[in-house]
């Protein structure tokens, strides 16, 4: 699995799946809510990210449900995906702490 920082869409998609499995449209709504309305994933972008995260083993299809005559696929975070997300959160928190420390120092 990649050790590079996650892109923002990938980070938010993993975060959207952290509490429970979701289908594609559910992920879009959750990402929008998590980002305070700032990020609204386009469907093509979402499936590009899902495709990559599945390939990297960070998420996996969980089940399929028939909804309005169409199959709806749900995705869930894997153990590896949770580790990636936790590592990214720790990285962001460390950065934020460091910057807060700098901001606390008033320029002379």
């Amino acid at each position: 699995m990649t050790a590079r920082p996650l892109t923002e869409p990938a980070f938010l998609v993993l975060a959207a799946l952290a509490d429970r499995p979701r289908h594609g449209y559910g992920v879009i709504g959750e990402v929008e809510e998590l980002s305070g309305g700032r990020v609204r994933l386009r469907v093509g972008t979402l499936y590009g990210v899902l495709d990559r995260l599945v390939a990297e083993g960070a998420i996996e299809p969980e089940r399929e449900e028939v909804h309005a005559g169409r199959v709806r696929r749900y995705y869930r975070l894997t153990g590896a995906g949770r580790q990636v997300l936790e590592a990214e959160v720790a990285r962001l928190e460390a950065n934020a702490r460091a910057v807060r420390g700098r901001l606390a120092v008033r320029p002379a």
Partner: peptide, 17 residues
């Protein structure tokens, strides 16, 4: 094979949105 893998799901998501 991406089309077979994702097209149905993507259409569903597009229509839902």
């Amino acid at each position: 094979p991406a089309r077979s893998r994702w097209a149905d799901d993507m259409v569903g998501t597009y229509l839902a949105a």
